[in-house]
Design a protein around this nucleic acid. Structure first.
Lengths: 352, 352
DNA sequence: TTGTAGGCGTTATCAC
DNA sequence: GTGATAACGCCTACAA
């Protein structure tokens, strides 16, 4: 009790909560043994481990993550950067991530780049300064600076949402271009011939969906620029209404529309309801992502089902495996997508 | 150059990035002066500060947040616990929070309790072990354990989303009970007499909305239990369809429905469209939160506009003020709400 | 398997 | 206003 660290006049700056030394003293071992028992119980003998467990519980000891990070030059943190918090797509991804990290000793450090590559650069710099155990970023269009930061981060790096060439390290996603191409082809096969495109935000993934739209129609009679409407404005249901109204007024013979995402598709549906256009007979509507509401709409809306939750879940499992040195059989995963074909693309009146 | 720290044979464990000592050496001052210049420039003389700035830039010095947290017993982190990531309500709150923290040197540490008080307890314990600068939690229904943790966290605490008695510390929210009461009264005044309630999830805030529904109808002829349908299942648009269908089959004379949230309201609208019920003449529909899609629907849907973004934004500003010791004029803020009255509650056929 | 020595990078404390 | 000293709590490296 002479050097308990609590004696009068002793100066301590900390908040006075128990430290690893307190536990060690109570258990009759050295601090490093406690440290080992906590991190890798197998490296400590049975009986000592038991003593230590008791001491930990008795004192209510909780390791200090900051001290741990400082000493080991490694924080038990996975940095995640996404471009939007309100986009349902990323909400699902995040849910998967948080589910996957549950029960582990790691924390997710979340950054919102707001679709700004520069903001992403800044966040990356901040995150790297914390020496994270892994980094997860959205998309494959990082700036050269950001890419360099990722390459020198000294930890596993995972790019999500898209598949593409030249990964920084690992990758989990799918081809937005191919997905778009496929659903546009579905519209064609359903009998639609004047197929338009409505797009908002027009971030890189939206651009590639537009490209997929073009790729699909090119061999099928060509792309009519008059049928394409895009805006850099953030996507919304109201915007879907507006964009469809614009497009219809400029191209009255439009008979189907592929919407960049589900919000726009929902807005397009409401616009049709308002103006009395029969869906799918007068106008076919397809969206992208297959949010839950799509199947519940009237009529149910066709979309591309993207495995968002799964992307989030698998990405965290993957970096966790990488962190713990486990074998990663595939470092680049094309996770695919599925068409969710519903009544809204049932075909025009005069289906061939 | 003899003791530059880079000389051969010297053992350094860190990743070799510049430290505050490197900056100090280059600027010809002591480390503590650099520390002060970085945190509170006014405490260091003009010329030294200039030298230090140059040195910082020359070396590309970035402070180590872990070392800082360890030494000061305080991490520049604001812990935030929300019950859901996919609920649009919290997405908006988070967006406000991330916007408000932008530019500060603080980080948000996000936890997802999945509507589980026990999970919230666990997260709180984990967060507190990091010595956060502030904590923000959702709702006012923490377990006694969680509440004790908050009270002993040694940092500002803010409860958001609801207003209520007995705050732990600070509070930003509004009365869900009163908001619900008001919109149900609106339905009554619009001429509806058989007003039902549809609820999902039924977390504490949903419960209070149900209470508001009852409080409104009690003095207006009483509550008919047959008009209330709730489920603990997570809310969704599809569920809104299902619940309305159930309710209509059990109470065919239903003439309006207050939905616990907007997803359910949207589902109720789709169900009416499917079964050919005129909205608002055969059935009035009101939701809660006023998500963007509500105004774009056909017909536009009535809801309660809740200031979600503002709650997020103001809550972070508030804890930031508290952290920096600024005066907080109001520690408990009722941020209010507004009715967004639209066509979907335009009144029944035989309006009085 | 366990322990010793010292460092991780920064800041609180107190002296000048 | 500036600096010396020690401490924050834990972990790596090496020794026994």
């Amino acid at each position: 009790m002479s050097d308990s660290g609590q004696s009068v006049g002793r100066k301590r700056r900390g908040a006075g909560r128990p430290t690893i030394s307190d536990v060690a003293r109570l258990a009759g071992v050295s601090p490093i043994t406690v440290s080992r028992a906590l991190r890798d119980p197998q490296r400590v003998s049975q009986d000592l481990r038991a003593n230590i467990d008791v001491a930990v519980r008795t004192l209510g000891y909780v390791p200090d993550p900051n001290a741990r990070a400082l000493a080991s030059s490694r924080a038990d943190v996975i940095g995640v950067i996404i471009p939007s918090l309100t986009n349902n797509v990323f909400a699902d991804v995040l849910r998967g991530m948080y589910d996957a990290i549950n029960g582990s000793s790691y924390q997710i450090q979340l950054g919102n780049s707001r679709y700004s590559p520069i903001e992403e650069e800044r966040l990356l710099t901040t995150f790297v300064s914390q020496r994270p155990s892994a980094l997860i970023v959205s998309g494959i269009d990082q700036t050269p600076t950001a890419r360099a930061t990722l390459e020198n981060a000294g930890c596993p790096v995972l790019q999500i949402m898209e598949s593409g060439p030249d990964p920084v390290d690992m990758m989990v996603g799918f081809s937005h271009r191919k997905a778009a191409e496929e659903i546009v082809r579905h519209l064609w096969h359903a009998g639609y011939r004047r197929i338009g495109f409505i797009g908002a935000r027009m971030d890189p993934r939206s651009q590639r969906r537009l490209q997929g739209y073009r790729d699909a129609l090119e061999p099928l009679g060509g792309v009519d620029p008059a049928l394409v409407t895009t805006t850099p404005a953030p996507s919304s249901v109201s915007l879907g209404r507006d964009l469809l109204r614009d497009l219809m007024s400029r191209a009255p013979d439009l008979d189907a529309v592929f919407c960049n995402n589900d919000d726009l598709a929902m807005g397009a549906l409401f616009e049709c309801q308002r103006s009395g256009l029969d869906v799918p007979r007068r106008l076919g509507i397809a969206g992208f992502n297959d949010l839950e509401m799509m199947a519940a709409a009237h009529p149910p809306l066709t979309s591309v089902r993207t495995p968002r939750y799964e992307i989030g879940y698998r990405s965290v499992r993957m970096v966790l495996d990488a962190i713990t040195g486990r074998d990663i059989p595939e470092r680049v995963i094309d996770i695919g997508y599925e068409l969710a074909v519903r009544d809204s693309t049932g075909g025009p009146v005069l289906s061939q």
